[in-house]
Design a binder for these strands. Structure first.
Length: 445
RNA sequence: GCCCAUGUAGUGUAGAGGCCUAUCAUGGAGCCCUGUCGAGGCUCCGACCCGGGUUCAAAUCCCGGCGUGGGCGCCA
């Protein structure tokens, strides 16, 4: 027997104009049971919403009524019945049940409330994600995240990019800058990769021309903040015969495309989250690093003046974000032309001004979302830059060799997907943007 | 890693030395009730993170541990 007979319709698939009187079967979770004595309402919930099952005492078989009245909340049921158009019912229809099949009874008490009557702390929610996602507004985040990833793929396929997958287990601590998780690989030491960077570039030498990847990255930093994860998702691209200006254009177009797609395709989820999307305006405003330093030093909001060569700390990022928002009304903007020494070795220095590089960060008012650059494709310069960062070229042999046998000028970026979701949906904690987040303290579930 | 805050029923909270046999909501069990509401009414059930200390007396004050939240650093 196929399980198809357990569900003919999702709760949002009833058409009140056509389906009145029709026999249907719905399956899902018992959201609520309200027994008023002579009449009893069971609210059934599935992924798409709620449906009211109405049992009138006088007209319902006692056995069915008895089952309904004693259903523990969140039990799994399949209910066969007839659709009755009823303006009083939420959704405009109710189901008059013929048969209630209890597929799995839930224990009580539940680890947390599913109806929105009682709040739960994030930690409690994450411990019981399977319950947490039964709440519409929490599931909505992941319905949107799914659409964001779909939009990213659509955008890149439409723009001539190939999707790739690169290894997450690597031999060497690649770029420097961040701590890596060491692992045992058979009897050798290995690491979880911090970024697909080096592999993306090798693929430019291979001639793949334009690639993108959506995949996990691992950072062993012991930071513990609302905007950091130890396992995150990176949207990475690399494109050949392109400079940093070309790359920034792709990035802003991608962000714009995603916002439009979500705005168009996630109306219910946005409503559940009470979010009105603010579509960013193209092109994004660009500030050079030099301009940023000057702007920040003129705000009078820094305790200490910045000097050329400083990286921006958290406070500076916030002050700058506010400044940009107030002067342009936009959340998204670029900071370009960073000092070469603040950027990784693979960033391309300007030929006539090697102390600055063809690199950029793409910022949101609240935090950095992306960084990218035109890459250095000149073997000798690359060696020099590795050396300047104190990195040993021998460890990068697998990466460097392709640069000797024909690699086009190229560039790319990486975007933190969770940060994108977080800023888009105004989430207060980045963990809300991951179903099962990994942070300094959390390794389960 | 540093700093600050915090830990009370399944969940979310009140309590700030004795009014604590610990508040309220939600939830669970039971009873009453025929229409949309977070339905309502009544009865009952269920908790002070752990270990020391101060005190006649500790949920409450102190110390340590652990957990959690936030900020910073670092990082994306």
């Amino acid at each position: 027997m196929s399980l198809k007979c357990l569900r003919t319709h999702y709760t949002n698939e009833i058409n009140t104009d056509e389906d009145d009187g029709k026999e249907i079967t719905m399956a899902g979770w018992v959201h609520e049971v309200r027994d008023l004595g002579g009449i009893c309402f069971v609210v059934l919930r599935d992924r798409e919403g709620l449906a009211q099952i109405t049992l009138v005492k006088k007209r319902t078989e006692p056995a069915v009524l008895d089952i309904a009245r004693h259903l523990p909340r969140e039990s799994i049921v399949s209910i066969k019945g007839n659709v009755k158009v009823e303006p009083k019912a939420p959704g405009g229809y109710e189901i008059i049940p013929v048969k209630i099949c209890v597929l799995n009874e839930a224990e009580t008490p539940l680890p947390m409330d599913t109806t929105g009557k009682v709040d739960a702390e994030l930690d409690t929610r994450l411990d019981s994600r399977y319950i947490d996602l039964r709440r519409e507004e929490n599931l909505a985040i992941f319905k949107i995240r799914s659409e964001v990833e779909k939009a990213i793929r659509m955008f890149f396929y439409e723009n001539g990019f190939m999707e790739t997958t690169t290894p997450k287990i690597v031999a060497a601590a690649t770029e420097g800058g961040t701590d890596l998780f060491p692992i045992t690989y058979f009897n050798r030491e290995a690491f979880l990769n911090q970024s697909p960077q080096l592999f993306k570039q090798i693929l430019m030498s291979a001639g793949l021309d334009r690639i993108f990847e959506i995949g996990p990255i691992f950072r062993a930093e012991e930071h513990d903040t609302r905007r950091h994860l130890n396992e995150a998702t990176s949207v990475d691209i690399e494109m050949s015969f392109a400079d940093h200006e070309d790359v920034m254009e792709v990035l802003e177009n991608m962000i714009h495309y995603i916002y439009l797609h979500v705005d168009e395709n996630c109306k219910d989820s946005l409503k559940a989250l009470e979010i009105e999307l603010k579509i960013p305006t193209l092109p994004f405003k660009k500030y050079t690093y030099d301009e940023v330093i000057e702007i920040l030093n003129n705000t009078g909001e820094l305790e200490e003046q910045l000097v050329w060569g400083d990286d921006l700390d958290t406070h500076s990022e916030h002050v700058l974000g506010q400044y940009v928002l107030e002067t342009t009304g936009e959340d998204h903007y670029f900071i370009t032309d960073w000092p070469t020494e603040t950027k990784p070795f693979y960033a391309m220095p300007y030929r006539n001004k090697p102390e600055i590089s063809k690199s950029f960060d793409m910022m949101h008012t609240k935090m950095e979302l992306s960084s990218g650059a035109q890459r250095c494709h000149i073997y000798d310069v690359l060696l020099k830059q590795l050396d300047a960062k104190g990195l040993d070229a021998e460890n990068f042999e697998f990466y460097l060799k392709p640069f000797r046998y024909g690699i086009p000028p190229h560039g790319g970026f990486g975007v933190g997907l969770e940060r994108l979701i977080m800023t888009m949906l105004n989430l207060q904690n980045i963990r809300e943007a991951v179903i099962f987040p990994r942070d300094r303290k959390r390794l389960s579930p």
